[in-house]
């Protein structure tokens, strides 16, 4: 029997999902659903299911849009943020959430990522970052660590990887954060904050791909890969209590940047007002 959450916010007639056993994507999709449920149920905030649109590109991560029972659009490879920009700009009252992957968002779609961040348009982008192209069978992506193996890096990857959250922050995103498949409670909270944030927000969530990335790189199965996240990624509450030296060995699970910059559609609303009233 599916849980109440799944019953309510997933399209159960389209489940089970296509993801491999042990994939981290299902956990992250659940985090998104829980975050949305809590916001929809919260009378203090104005988030509704009817006004929420989930946008995805192409890749393993992007199948999530079709499973979630909201308005959803599964677009072309790399262009999710660009479609989402059109949706948000045309109807700013919509809550537009982009579910994307490391390749979709930072390789083929990298230009849209940095420009949406620069505009600070009120999208919430959640990257299911598994360090690999899973859908096509394990080619290296812009986040595959240097030295790791992939089907297109049989001798080890000689590219330097991106930190997607830092990339977005550098491009002007007003809210960036990092989550992980292991840290579900913290990640759910970060997604909620990202949705409530008025400007562009990006939550880079480390997923796990035991099938194509883990196996090729001797990282063990799903359990070992999640244990690695437990041991090497630290929630903010503990992270900032650690010595600076210790922090250098760990990855923060929490907010990286949080600024209040003018939001794009609100600025356009002012422009419209100005042009139409002549003031």
């Amino acid at each position: 029997m599916p849980s109440e959450l799944i019953h309510k916010y997933m399209r159960i007639d389209h489940l089970p999902h296509i993801w491999c056993p042990g994939c981290g994507n299902g956990i992250i999709m659940r985090d998104v659903a829980v975050a949305l449920e809590e916001l929809i149920d919260d009378p203090e905030v104005n988030v509704s299911r009817e006004k929420t649109v989930i946008v995805s590109g192409i890749g393993c991560s992007s199948r999530a849009a079709g499973y979630m029972d909201f308005n959803s659009i599964h677009t072309t490879h790399g262009r999710a943020i660009a479609f989402a920009t059109g949706i948000k700009f045309a109807h700013p009252e919509l809550e537009v959430i982009v579910l994307t992957g490391d390749g979709d968002c930072s390789a083929i779609g990298g230009n849209h990522l940095i420009h949406a961040a620069r505009r600070n348009i009120g999208l919430t982008v959640i990257t299911f970052n598994n360090d690999i192209y899973g859908m096509t069978g394990g080619q290296y992506s812009p986040t595959t660590p240097t030295g790791d193996r992939a089907t297109t890096a049989p001798y080890g990857n000689y590219d330097r990887p991106f930190d997607i959250a830092q990339l977005a922050a550098g491009a002007g995103a007003s809210f960036t954060a990092r989550g992980s498949a292991y840290h579900t409670r913290e990640t759910t909270e970060l997604i909620k904050q990202g949705i409530l944030h008025k400007g562009f927000s990006l939550i880079d969530v480390f997923s796990v791909c035991p099938t194509y990335y883990g196996r090729k790189n001797h990282k063990g199965g799903a359990v070992e890969m999640l244990q690695w996240q437990r041991d090497n990624m630290v929630p903010a509450s503990r992270y900032y209590a650690m010595s600076e030296e210790k922090r250098r060995e760990k990855i923060l699970v929490g907010i990286l940047t949080h600024n209040e910059y003018p939001e794009y559609t609100q600025e356009y609303a002012k422009l419209l007002e100005k042009v139409q009233t002549g003031k």
Binding site: V55, I73, T75, T76, G78, R79, A82, F83, A84, T85, G86, I87, F89, A90, H91, L94, N111, H112, I114, H115, Y268, L271, L272, V275, Q276
Partner: peptide, 27 residues
């Protein structure tokens, strides 16, 4: 803007086409 419409200069041609489709999907 004079007729209450929206203009956006996108970062590239691909994004322009994508944004147009996204906007049209909202009616």
């Amino acid at each position: 803007p004079q007729v209450g419409g929206r203009f956006i200069q996108m970062e590239d041609e691909l994004a322009s086409m994508a944004a147009v489709l996204g906007a049209s999907a909202t009616g």
